[in-house]
């Protein structure tokens, strides 16, 4: 199939982009990497009247690493660009582990970090990572800018809190605490397929016991889900302790939808099992940093 008719704009400034969105936002779609939008256009499942291609907007192509401010990723930065940054492993090892899981390298060569966040596919890894690390989205429009925490940004299936005239200009991942443990696990029938279920874990330990935990499940419902009850139950636990209980807790806490690929019950069960693996690996890393032996 082929894309439907649309008019095309490729502005070269952010201001021009926001002008276009202010006027045509209701019936326009922003094109960055195109790895999610182009399939929809090819199948004519989306029929925007206008495509606003932001790939020529230099201001959106920033990628900055800073010890104090973390990582700031502009809207047109490719997933591969971030993946290949030499600074990434230390700046955010969770992102470093998550990025190669996204699709295939050919997809990541064009797909953007912000595009994945704005598209909000429930099976995507990046929204779950953003939620696990409390990333902040910079949302801009002709009328101004606002900072949106990840938890408020993701609403439901393919839906974020972006208004029709707004653009996700960049995402900020906070500075990583070197003593933290982390892990991401996902299950897909083939590597690169949409995950049937996935778990992201971030773990802070003090003197060998869990001081803070973040467990985010993805691929199961409309948006990444924080397992807050399980996170609470983990406080004070030690490495390897109560893994079976954590698995059970996640299995009960998570809200799953079924489809022809997998039933809801199966997904919840997988989520539990992945949580066990992810927590175990997160502990190994937390301990390996030496701060918590």
């Amino acid at each position: 199939m082929k894309p439907p008719l649309f008019s095309y704009a490729d502005p070269e400034s952010l201001q021009e982009t926001l002008e276009l969105l202010a006027v045509r936002g209701d019936t326009a779609k922003v094109l960055a990497g195109g790895q999610s939008l182009m399939p929809l256009l090819n199948f004519r499942l989306a029929r925007p009247e206008m495509i606003v291609d932001i790939n020529r907007v230099q201001e959106l192509h920033t990628l900055a690493f800073s010890d104090s401010a973390g990582i700031r990723v502009g809207a047109t930065v490719r997933q591969r660009e971030l993946e290949r940054s030499s600074a990434l492993c230390t700046a955010n090892p969770l992102l470093a582990e998550a990025l190669p899981l996204i699709g295939h390298f050919q997809i990541r060569n064009r797909g953007t970090v912000c595009g994945s966040l704005a598209h909000a596919d429930p099976a995507s890894e990046l929204p779950a990572v953003a939620l696990a690390v409390d990333a902040e989205m910079t949302v801009v429009s002709r009328g101004g800018r606002r900072i949106v925490p990840a938890d408020d940004f993701f609403v439901s299936y393919l839906t974020t809190s972006l208004a029709a005239d707004e653009l996700l200009a960049d995402v900020s991942f906070p500075p990583w605490k070197t003593q933290d443990g982390w892990a991401i696990e996902e299950l897909a029938r083939r590597a690169g397929d949409f995950a049937l279920a996935g778990i992201v874990v971030r773990l802070s330990a003090e003197r060998g016991t869990c001081a803070a935990a973040r467990i985010v499940a993805f691929g199961l419902g409309g948006r990444p889900q924080r397992m807050t009850a399980t996170e609470q139950a983990m406080l004070g636990s030690t490495a390897g302790e109560a893994i079976a209980e954590i698995e059970q807790a996640v299995r009960s806490e998570v809200e799953s939808e079924g489809d022809i690929h997998a039933s809801a019950e199966y997904r919840s069960e997988v989520a539990g099992a992945l949580a066990g693996r992810a927590v175990t690996r997160a502990w190994e890393r937390a301990i390996a940093t030496g701060a918590n032996a």
Binding site: M1, F43, R44, L45, P122, S156, Y157, L158, D259, I260
Partner: peptide, 17 residues
């Protein structure tokens, strides 16, 4: 049809939504 083919994994969730 096409919507189901491509969007199968999102259907029941979106339906409930």
């Amino acid at each position: 049809g096409r919507l189901a083919q491509v969007g199968q994994r999102l259907l029941s969730g979106v339906g409930k939504l």
